[in-house]
Design a protein around this nucleic acid. Structure first.
Lengths: 340, 340
DNA sequence: CTGAAAGCGCTTACAG
DNA sequence: CTGAAAGCGCTTACAG
């Protein structure tokens, strides 16, 4: 179908030069060209609307002009913002972005990489944190393709990282300030590296601040609202007393609030609830949600810059605690939900 | 970088045949090949992990194996679901998806198309509805690239459409059933085709059901929560009485609820609020939101099928009314906010 | 300062 | 049934 498109030969004929010259002008190679020739070729290219065929360029050993983006779920606003950042940093340079959702499944992650490598993308932005020990990434042949990661990973690629530890510690400290001592942790799956990182931070902060360290307070639910709902119900049904919830994801926190209210508990009166990522909805939730905001858009942009830069410039991003109505000082007596 | 990758020649050498034969086997061309040859080539390709270089295939006049996806905003769950559908229908066939967000800006829409065409994508899925008269689409050279649209469009491409008219009529009828007579319409910009379509449906339904047809009840705000908030404040400040809000987008509806509650009004007591698209968050809103659910995921899948199928198979999708707490029968006397 | 030629890795007539 | 050759549209040594 893509027929009768303008080729370098068309430009060459119109400008009365060879295709070699056209190529040189278009790529600003060979500085020894006459300004007149240069201008004549430019004019011809402009008039004809010439654009080098990417397939030919790629075949000659050049770049394909395509970047791959691997995310757990573009529907998650956190990754959505990263995608926007990657897009905005890439399009101006003529790069297209091929995205792949993996739902944090190793199988799908491998398929995504296979697809991207088969397309010969110039680089891959990997985000969402590692799965298991990331062996499927470390063990495979990348054929020299540049890879950049965002978030916690075990593989040794240039990386954009986040201060997850500081962020979680800040949130736990905030909950402690609100007089909470038993924080139910609605974590994601145990083999997600981001979960392991945040969980370690939670445990360290809990110990440091002298809060209750009950193992029953950690639930490896997942990152959906249903997961958060289920985790809270399990804790309630299991008689695990708690006066706060810390979900590693806002969707889980929303589910937690829903479950608490359904059971007749008050938020934050009985239980304070906090999330991570600070999605736009947080403010519109049944009880406006306290959360941690990360700079995901800027992280996406930074990842693209890493392809060009050197490893000494790997950026580490901070966080911001956004306190809203879902967390407040404890007003009722000590025993919240059920005594244990 | 992508060096030492397996080429057809490597496979040919290993199988003891010519590259011509390799090509024929890999593409199932030339049915007159010896089963043994066929198997030998297949084995060699498998052992070597051979995959045809897409650039070479594309250059020979074949497909690039890449599809373009143009959306207003992937952050909007409606489009996100479409993207998932497009992805899931494409990846199994080896197609990669390059996405472009346009924010409903004609300039950006043009840039997106330029980028996609420059990449020589095999097809473009255009969604989000037309802008203005879609002249920028009708007037340009597509170089034979296949295009498929989702949602209302004025251009003449194979299309996946939605029964917007029936959906809006159903919602207006529902609000009328709840005893509402003055429905504030939080529309998007007037030159968005989806807005024009829905607005026409709103007006027709309002007339048909004998509800108030006050022009002041239509506000061309936009599709963000802030837009919805602003529209409600304008109506309130302007003394435009209304007992219901119909936003053409859930984000706008969330903003509307927020503004109403801030002004001390009750939802749905004083004002019923309804949205469109039924995002997952609708159920977690301050007041669970009544909305219209569309089958965006299936629409995305259908769009990809349209590339292969013929125009007689263009699908039209329905809708589903999801009634939640934000709409209920009017309990108070007739004069809601302010008399006019 | 500019051009002819080779070659990237395929596929498709054209031979045999 | 299988292969040699041409060519897709570029870029890059190599000449001049």
């Amino acid at each position: 179908m893509p027929a009768n498109r303008v080729s370098a030969r068309d430009v060459a004929e119109r400008a009365g030069v060879s295709v070699t010259t056209v190529s040189r002008v278009m790529n600003d190679k060979g500085g020894e060209l006459t300004p007149e020739t240069r201008e004549r070729v430019r004019a011809a290219a402009r008039e004809l609307g010439y654009r080098a065929h990417p397939a030919a360029v790629a075949l000659r050993g050049g770049r394909t002009g395509v970047l791959g983006l691997v995310v757990p779920d573009l529907g998650d606003q956190y990754f959505q913002q990263i995608a926007r950042g990657v897009e905005d940093a890439s399009h101006p340079q003529g790069y297209g972005i091929v995205f792949c959702n993996t739902d944090r499944d190793i199988e799908r992650e491998n398929e995504a990489i296979d697809l991207l490598l088969a397309k010969r993308v110039d680089g891959i932005v990997f985000c969402g944190g590692g799965l298991g020990d990331d062996a499927h990434l470390a063990g495979r042949d990348w054929f020299g393709t540049s890879v950049v990661t965002i978030g916690p990973h075990l593989s040794d690629f240039p990386a954009v990282t986040v201060d997850d530890t500081g962020a979680i510690r800040a949130m736990v400290a905030h909950l402690a300030d609100m007089g909470r001592r038993r924080i139910l942790c609605v974590a994601g799956k145990e083999d997600w590296l981001v979960v392991r990182t945040r969980l370690a931070a939670y445990r360290a902060a809990v110990a440091e601040l002298g809060l209750d360290q009950d193992p029953a307070l950690v639930d490896f639910a997942g990152f959906t609202a249903d997961d958060g709902r289920a985790a809270v119900e399990r804790a309630l049904d299991g008689g695990v007393g708690f006066d706060a919830v810390l979900a590693f994801n806002d969707y889980g926190a929303l589910g937690a609030i829903d479950a608490l209210l359904r059971r007749g508990l008050s938020v934050p009166g009985d239980v304070a609830v906090s999330g991570c990522d600070d999605i736009d909805f947080a403010v519109f939730a049944r009880v406006p949600l306290t959360s941690l905001r990360f700079q995901s858009y800027a992280m996406g942009r930074a990842a693209v810059r890493l392809f060009a830069g050197d490893r000494s410039e790997e950026p580490r991003f901070g966080y911001e605690l956004r306190v809203r109505a879902s967390t407040a000082p404890l007003t009722k007596p000590a025993q919240p939900t059920e005594a244990r």
